[in-house]
Amino acid sequence: MNIFVCIKRVPDTSEAIVKVDDTGRGVDSSKFSFDINESDNYAVEEAVLLKEAKGGNVQIVCAGTQDADMMIRMALAKGCDSAIRIDDPRINEVDPLQVAKVLAAAIKGKEFDLVLTGCMASDDGNMAVGVALAEELGVPHAAMVKKVEAGDGKVKVYRELEGGISEVVEMDLPAVITIQTGINEPRYAPIKGIRLAQKKELTVLKLEDLGVAPEEVSEAASLIALENFYIPEVESKAEILEGEPEEKAALLAEKLVKGGLL
């Protein structure tokens, strides 16, 4: 079973202060720490599990700068076989359909059974690249998948719906699946794997190498425009308790008990 897995490097902003930069269309990322996008990490694990069960190989595809190489090497260390990184500043990352076009160009024409992506990038939250990629490749897809059962020429997937219900879908291969978090337990890269990963092939390509006209995936060609970022006003009615941690804890306890909430 030959698998492509698409991954993205994203900042961890879960506890970071996010500020709009001087351009008004970006954020100050100087203090962010970056790593593989969470659901992409699950997609890598699922790809490696499928390879271990069925044989074949796993190729990574990533659009990003050299900064992504560490992340790519870690995925290789977990058992992926090779990687393609498309390093081109002309790619308009704001438009998921253009990103999908670039990824598709790296996969098109090659033999594959499955393409896995994470179901959502945590930075832009679009949830669009994987499904758009399937359309570009002309193959069926299923989004937000929590279980994969690969069979002969077909795959059965469990899509996680609202309320925890699963929708079971069967598709002919090749197909694209977008992976939901929690589908497996992503492994840590083994030391031996990290050593081996240094020797694995990581090909860096430009748009021209893929036969993609740069203007086609440029901001100018996008059918949507990001005009400006702004920090949303948090309309909080919350009473924020002040003091040292133990004072705040005591105050909260009193409010809960004396307020009749407990």
Binding site: T13, D123, G125, E227, Y230
Partner: peptide, 19 residues
Amino acid sequence: KPVRQFYQGKVNANFSFKG
């Protein structure tokens, strides 16, 4: 002019359609 969010709701963005 649709509005959407980035960074898990920490930033909003004004968008527009072209074409």
